[in-house]
Design a protein around this nucleic acid. Structure first.
Lengths: 226, 226
DNA sequence: CGAACGATTGACGTTTCTCAAGGCTGGTGG
DNA sequence: CCACCAGCCTTGAGAAACGTCAATCGTTCG
């Protein structure tokens, strides 16, 4: 296999160490590391939120289900991303998309620190605001964009976050993308085929999840922003 | 007119005074009050975010536009709601849905206070988390619910927030509702007609925005949650 | 009073979904 | 080493949901 699971990413705006939350500076904080195999649940909806996570490698998806099985993925968590914030109880199920390593911090110790550390709370506020902005962008996509615009926007987003040797190597399946974009796998597939025919994309040999983006400008044009 | 613009609401989880931000306790904070007429812009997308607002009476809508005019309303702000949070620049345009009175606080003074007041930052974090949760619920609605489920969910939401003499008096037009739910005005209208035929709703004489909900259970059933 | 606006309804069009078939890939066990 | 199977992706044909266009009606506001 050519691009053997090297899921790297661009630097993210936040990280545990930015909290001053390294083991050195805060011996009270234990930065455990843990690995989840592909498809494994990291936490479930309605479970008490005991930990906050940071992706070290791999990818995770957070989603909610309707009673008849319809699924909406609200976000993919890529290396560097912090997830599991919020208060009290998890509102999503989160699973490993592929084998995924995470660091985890006990929420309890985080909250204890937060009582005295104004900068830490500000950092939490900043991260939550970032999550809110992502959700708000996604509202516009789900409410008002066509299937082509959604797929183009998704590729642009992933292109900005997943870098592997110039090839956009998507860890998620068509089903994941469909449930992220509020579409079906068939519509995703057709949109991608269309983009390939237009000369905007190129699939690498033998793996439809390894994508070469031929024309970023055209892609941005197909997602009529603003 | 029967239910003359008495747009009241249930108590909201947060308010400026909860900050300890009354004029008495913090003379440095000026709680100006201002009124916007129906349809007037309170702030525009990309404008510097100089103020934070609390609705005293009326209603406001926050939205974004695509270049061809498609609009997505991300939230309605009802009495008690605080809006305009975030950092630096507004990401939405916000307008008065009807004549609307707001209190406003200078962001600058808020940030100055926040440097020393841990509880205030925590309060901001809590409000931002509330906004995030609302957006996340809306993602599921926009990505995976049918038109009937969306309209039912919207009525349930508004019923929980707008109370006027036992009648759900909607301040917003069909267009606003459509752009909130990612549908068209015709689809909203047909869904509401269907609900009326089902005996779930009843429109008050001479005003289609004054709705009596006949059967809340049926309505909740039509929005298949979870 | 007339014009503008908002809502409803019907006929029809388009997009997206559903259902079904087939191909490719990777893993497993004989 | 190869055959087989399961999972994932693609493609096509037809169906369904929702959007578009157009006509009509009532209300509001100069």
């Amino acid at each position: 296999m050519l691009f053997h699971s090297t899921w790297t990413s661009l630097p993210r705006p936040h990280s545990f160490s930015e909290f001053g939350m390294t083991a050195e500076s805060n011996p009270s904080i234990s930065l455990n590391e843990f690995t989840y195999r592909r498809g494994r649940e990291i936490y479930g909806e309605k479970e008490p939120a005991d930990y906050v996570y940071q992706v070290m490698s791999g990818a995770a998806r957070s989603y909610r289900l309707l009673s008849d099985g319809r699924r909406q993925i609200s976000a993919f968590h890529l290396p560097g991303d912090i997830f599991g914030l919020g208060n009290g109880v998890h509102r999503f199920t989160t699973e490993a998309v592929i084998d995924t390593a995470v660091r985890l911090v006990k929420r309890e110790s985080l909250e204890t620190l937060a009582n005295n550390d104004n900068a830490l709370v500000k950092n939490l506020l900043c991260m939550t605001t970032t999550n809110l902005q992502h959700a708000e962008d996604h509202l516009l996509l789900l409410g008002r964009k066509t299937s082509m615009e959604r797929v183009a926007a998704c590729l642009i987003e992933m292109d900005g976050r997943l870098i592997a040797a110039g090839v956009l190597a998507l860890p998620m399946t068509r089903r994941d993308i469909a449930d992220y974009l509020g579409l079906t796998i068939e519509t995703i597939s057709r949109s991608l085929s269309c983009l390939r025919e237009l000369g905007v994309l190129h699939f690498m040999d033998n793996n439809q999840r390894h994508v070469v983006i031929m024309d970023r400008n055209k892609l941005a044009e197909l997602d009529r922003q603003n």
